[in-house]
């Protein structure tokens, strides 16, 4: 039982890999869905922008900072009742997605806000001077111009989510992180630990490469 390859149950590992991918895909999609509009709002309500409002920008900023200040491991536990309410369980892939989204969306929103801020000011003014509505400004100018930055932000967020999914393993979410803790750490099965870490590394490496390639594709600067 203690042979070098004796601990490696490949079916376990492939199941855990699929769980990690499912958690990542689901939470990334929802993070973009919620984080992108939030980031746009953060930008538009900031001083000097079309919807500039100290109250709105202060409130949004505070909410985002609050969620970002809570350590993810604490968020996982605090969110359990809300998670059960939302998806019916706090366990497994499904139970992991709400805390992952709540943890990552504010982070992604800040990255979107930063990317929008990088758009050349005279470009924004030019489009406003054409008689664009704020909606047209966002859809026709701000988002296309900031797209490389936003894609880079998605890459960073996806990689952050990979490490979040590993942490979610602690509260029974499954996935590679769960495997690493239960077998690699608690049962001293070093080979399981090594395999999971290598797989996570491969995942991170792939995400970064894909992200970089997309940024290059979208960038015409």
């Amino acid at each position: 039982m203690t042979g070098v390859s004796g601990n490696l149950y490949w079916s376990e590992i492939s199941r855990a890999s699929l769980e990690t991918l499912a958690m990542l895909g689901g939470s990334l999609a929802l993070t973009i869905l919620f984080g992108l509009p939030l980031g746009i709002l953060l930008f538009l309500t900031s001083p000097g922008q079309p919807w500039a409002s100290r109250a709105a920008s202060g409130l949004l900023g505070f909410a985002v900072n609050l969620l970002r200040a809570v350590p993810f491991i604490i968020l996982l536990i605090v969110m359990i009742p809300l998670t059960v309410l939302l998806v019916g369980t706090s366990l497994g892939v499904l139970g992991a997605i709400p805390p992952l989204v709540v943890g990552a969306a504010p982070f992604f929103a800040r990255l979107v806000e930063t990317a929008l801020r990088e758009v050349d000011r005279s470009t924004v003014q030019a489009v406003q001077a054409m008689g664009a509505t704020t909606r047209e400004l966002v859809l026709l100018a701000l988002l296309p111009e900031a797209l490389p930055g936003i894609v880079a932000g998605i890459t960073i967020t996806a990689i952050t989510l990979v490490s979040f999914t590993a942490m979610a393993g602690v509260v029974g979410a499954g996935g590679l992180g769960d495997l690493a803790i239960r077998f690699g750490y608690q049962r001293f099965q070093t080979d399981v630990m090594i395999v999971t870490v290598v797989l996570l590394l491969l995942l991170v490496q792939c995400l970064q490469m894909m992200g970089d390639r997309l940024v290059r594709y979208f960038s015409h600067r």
Partner: peptide, 22 residues
């Protein structure tokens, strides 16, 4: 009304203000 007026008053800029994505 302002947006309609802006179509009659156009502007060019020092750093051109072109959209790099287009």
């Amino acid at each position: 009304a302002l947006r309609t007026l802006r179509r009659r008053v156009q502007m060019i800029f020092q750093n051109f203000g072109l959209l790099s994505s287009r």
